[in-house]
């Protein structure tokens, strides 16, 4: 979950698609999060990736804020996990 300086809330899959790293520890700027290990950045809105080493985007989940509560509707797309990492 990301809360930007502009006050918008976003939800992405947490694992970078290149290597097992938590995007929650990354750097948020211009509505994108940069992986804490490498240079790939992901859109907080759509999950798409801009540059290598990651090749695939992450899933973005639909977020609505209602009376101060954050509601997330999980994406039904197939998660894009890095090689060697599986869903627990």
């Amino acid at each position: 979950m990301f809360l930007t300086e502009e006050g918008t809330v976003h939800a992405l899959d947490d694992t970078c698609t290149h290597q097992d790293a938590s995007l929650a520890a990354g750097w948020v700027e211009n509505c994108r999060v940069e992986c804490p290990l490498h240079e790939s950045t992901f859109s907080l809105r759509t999950g798409e990736v801009d540059q290598p080493p990651a090749k695939r985007g992450v899933r973005a989940h639909q977020v609505t804020v209602q009376d101060g509560e954050v509601l997330v509707e999980l994406s039904t797309a197939v998660p894009q996990l890095p090689p060697g990492v599986e869903v627990a």
Partner: peptide, 10 residues
């Protein structure tokens, strides 16, 4: 310390 290092770099 991913958070701290990424912050330092940025």
């Amino acid at each position: 310390r991913l958070r701290e290092v990424v912050r330092w770099r940025r």
